[in-house]
Amino acid sequence: MRHLKLIASFFKVSTQAELAYRSNFFIRLLNSFLSLGTGVLSLVVIFNQVETINGWSLPGTLALLGIYLLLGGLRGLFISPSLESVAGMDGEIWQGTFDFTMLRPVDKQFLVSFRNWRIYALFDVVLALGVLIYAIILLGETLSLGILLSFLLMLLASVILLYSSLLAFSALVFWNSGFLFTWIINDLFQLARYPVGLYPDWLRLILTWIIPVGLMTTIPAQALSGTLSPAMMAITLIFSLATLAGASWLFRRGLMKYASASS
């Protein structure tokens, strides 16, 4: 409850800061439409040449694009801005102001995960939902409650996976402050734009088990089309929770490293 209140307060203040720069509104709007436009046009171009790729048709891939944009929107809404304020360029580790964060009487992981919000990322979220709904209509399926619930559950698992990966990469900054580890995961996230099944085997294995960006969009898309087995669903859920636990552990180790390091 207290944490929810804090989140509300963080959201309010971040939004205020963002609204202070009016030009940001138009630029963010432009960028949102650009990423939507290039994403949709890409699919149009690809499926103009072929009917299906490895069993994926236009509607299924479009649904996956919707999920990709949705995850990207959530990432841009608070995960990235919050984590980057610690580990990014000009972040607290670089500037040396992380000391203040260390001294706040609040759980540090909570603090660094939720304190910065970018309200304009909601454009991305809304557009993504639009794409997703349109793709579901194209798929022509009637969504049963079971499918909808399993989709939402897998979407949640994906958000957890995404958050955990970013947290883990951000935590590495405690060991090497000069490197922008979060950029790597941001770059690799682009690979989630397409079903992981379209990539060569070696890459598919990496994207599933080592840096699980491949799972983040493919699994919810499969859940939506009803082709995901309950076993796979359970595995994904367990895997995402395990990743969360691992990332939190790494982050705590990072804090300990920080507290024993030189000045």
């Binding site: 690809i46 040449q49 072929v50 790729i53 490895n54 770059d187 690799l188 682009q190 690979l191 734009r193 397409y194 379209l198 990539y199 060569p200 890459l203």
Partner: peptide, 13 residues
């Protein structure tokens, strides 16, 4: 990376 993505996509296609 984006170029690699489309390399793989078109190869699969």
């Amino acid at each position: 990376l984006p170029l690699l993505v489309y390399l793989f996509i078109w190869s699969a296609a």
